[in-house]
Design a protein around this nucleic acid. Structure first.
Length: 135
DNA sequence: TCAGTGACTCCCC
DNA sequence: CGGGGAGCCACTG
């Protein structure tokens, strides 16, 4: 047995979490990481999405556009996907303020507690989530 | 096998 | 506000 099971599981959890984000709502990389079970792995979420983008067939039903950074900005301009992401989000009714930021007060998805509970996260991560969502 | 590189975020000046 | 450093884990050559 190797240690690759938990790692692979994290990736699965990340993709699963992203698929939960409702139409017209967004989550930050950090919150996705939290809900996937690893609060400090926000960077990895970006990495996973980046690599997922290279295999469009595999992940064609992934609403990747609903993941933005903590400030509500699009992190995808640097790899040339910014305009596409913005277009997809606007199509869902998400709008941007004059700083090219999404007002998270309005569009950040706050998952129902029932759903959070279902994730069976360790207590310490629940605290992190509570803090980050500013419940 | 191993080091490098990220669609990030937090903490500490 | 902002720069620097650390942590996180998947993927690549």
């Amino acid at each position: 047995m190797t240690s690759q099971v938990p790692a692979k599981n994290f990736r699965e959890q990340v993709l699963k979490t992203i698929r939960l984000i409702p139409y017209g709502k967004v989550l930050s990389y950090g919150l996705v990481a939290c809900m996937a079970g690893s609060p400090r792995a926000s960077r990895i979420v970006g990495g996973i999405l980046y690599h997922s983008g290279l295999r469009v067939k595999e992940e064609k039903n992934l609403p990747w556009q609903r993941v933005v950074n903590q400030k509500g900005e699009l992190s995808t301009y640097r790899i040339g996907l910014g305009d596409l992401q913005k277009k997809l989000l606007k199509r869902e009714g998400v709008y941007f303020d004059s700083d090219e930021r999404i007002p998270l007060k309005k569009f950040l998805w706050k998952p129902p507690f029932r759903l959070i509970k279902k994730l069976q996260l360790p207590e310490e991560i629940l605290w992190e989530l509570e803090r980050k969502f500013d419940f």
